[in-house]
Structures are given as structure tokens and as C-alpha cells.
């Protein structure tokens, strides 16, 4: 019983670690490429989110290390009061384990670079 219980918890812990790393991978790809602001000369600005891009993000399914994941994304930022873009993506399933990652980023809106937070919630598809 002791060993079975420990093994189950070890598997659960490893699964959570895998989900955490996969969420980081999805978040990094979003911040550096998919949501990155591209200026008028065509130069991309990684770590800077274009305020117009999150609503037009169409695909919320990613494959990381051979495993399929789905995610929601929201961008929060301060402009007098807190504003929230999103969340965009499928509804969060209640019965599945998920990982939430909130990290700092910059958002480009109305010709200004504002501090923002990106919130990504990912789960196994």
C-alpha cells in the first residue's frame, strides 16, 4: 500500500512537472512569436505583445514533446485601470489537471509600450 501510494504520487508529481514545462513552452512561443508586435518596417519585437493579436489567435491546440495540449490565453495591463484582453480559447475542462502561468510582458497599444501580464492556462487535450 505504501509503495503503491508513493508510486501514484510520484507519477502525479511527474505529470504536473510535464504540464508545467509544456505550459512554459506554449507561453514562450506565444510571447516571442505568435503574439509578438511587428513594427512598420517588418522587424519583430519579441517579449512585446501586439494588442491586436490576441483576439485574432485562431488555434488553441499545441503539440509539445509529442503530447497534445489545449490552452487559454489572456493579457492583462494597466492603463489608468486594469484592462483584460480575453481570455481567448476553449472552455477550461473541470475534470482535467491544468497549469496556470502568469508572467510579465510588454504590450504595444496606441503607440505606447505598457507593462502587462500574460496568463496562460494549459491542459492535456
Amino acid at each position: 500500500m505504501l509503495v503503491v501510494s508513493a508510486y501514484r504520487q510520484y507519477r502525479s508529481s511527474s505529470e504536473m512537472a510535464l504540464l508545467s514545462d509544456s505550459t512554459s513552452s506554449i507561453a514562450t512561443h506565444l510571447a516571442l512569436e505568435e503574439l509578438a508586435y511587428v513594427d512598420v518596417t517588418g522587424i519583430p519585437h519579441p517579449y512585446v505583445v501586439d494588442a491586436a493579436k490576441p483576439p485574432s489567435l485562431g488555434n488553441f491546440r499545441r503539440t509539445v514533446g509529442g503530447d497534445n495540449f489545449e490552452f487559454q490565453v489572456a493579457v492583462l495591463y494597466m492603463r489608468e485601470n486594469e484592462r483584460v484582453l480575453g481570455p481567448y480559447g476553449p472552455t477550461l475542462p473541470e475534470e482535467k489537471m491544468n497549469c496556470t502561468l502568469i508572467f510579465a510582458a510588454t504590450i504595444f497599444e496606441n503607440d505606447r509600450y505598457l507593462p502587462a501580464k500574460i496568463k496562460v492556462i494549459a491542459w492535456r487535450a
Partner: peptide
């Protein structure tokens, strides 16, 4: 690893915002 990532993103935010 997530905290290291958060540290990098916070630095980049302070560098660009």
C-alpha cells in the same frame, strides 16, 4: 524553471516598457 522564465520576462519587460 518557471521562476527563471518569469525572471527573464520581467527583465525584458523593464527593458522594453
Amino acid at each position: 524553471r518557471q521562476l527563471q522564465l518569469k525572471s527573464e520576462y520581467l527583465y525584458k519587460t523593464m527593458e522594453t516598457a
